[in-house]
Amino acid sequence: MSVPARRIRWSAVLDHSILIIGSLIMILPVVMLVQMASTTDLHTTKFGPGWVFGDQLPVNFEKAMFKADGFSGENTGLRMLYNSMILGFGFAIGKIVIGMMAAYAIVYFRLKFATLAFWVIFTTLLLPLEVRILPSYEIVQKLGMLNTYQGLIIPLIASATATFFFRQYFRSIPEELVEAARIDGAGPIKFFIDILVPLSRTMIAAMFIIMFVYGWNQYLWPTMITTDEGMYTLVRGIKQITQTLEGTNLPEYGRSNLLAIIAILPPVLIVIFFQSWFVKGLTESDK
């Protein structure tokens, strides 16, 4: 019935509507957390989330960052932020350094046991930490690494995702490059540091973003391994947040929601600002 030109416009309206609804579904829940963090706890307890923002953000921020609960008084937001940073950076850097080294050895050297090393390393891709969580806990306990940063970070590194990623990437680099470097007299270490690492800059950045977000967002492992409140990360601290909401007194919605927002802010900002690297790293890691 309608004119073709008009029909096309209607389909565009439909497309945009679907996308807008989708975007709202992604955004509104988090806006709701912000709104609840901006009103008084009494208001939230009575009426729940609403459309009007209050002026309590600074007050709640103060509480979230500097007030601690629990016995030791050590799990302030600031302390948890610090621990999260260590976990995020430690995990990302550790994983990339170890992964690049292993991938370099596998791709660029003639090793007798290369195939064996490859399988030993890549079997780890098959079983996530969650599957072997209890025995891992026992071993960390035996090694006396409970409530330490090493105990938090190193077991998480024991899977070969970064190694696999760099292996794929190194193999896509033309062979002529090694030949040329060797003719020019570059040894294996010089080739690695002066040629391969600079060449992989974009890949390292992409991997760093993915690994940082992954490390930062870890929940189960930190929950088991850190019992000392001074060692809590923000994401692990969320468990405490929900449990205080169950308290008999006035639940501290403002403080707890603001803590949840602080917990998601750094990884969200990184993903948004370094979007193209992040998408590249994510979609190219599976090939």
């Binding site: 969320i238 917990a263 969200v268």
Partner: peptide, 10 residues
């Protein structure tokens, strides 16, 4: 980038 437990809180 949102951690799963935050999704649980939501």
């Amino acid at each position: 980038a949102v951690a799963p437990p935050v999704a649980g809180v939501i």
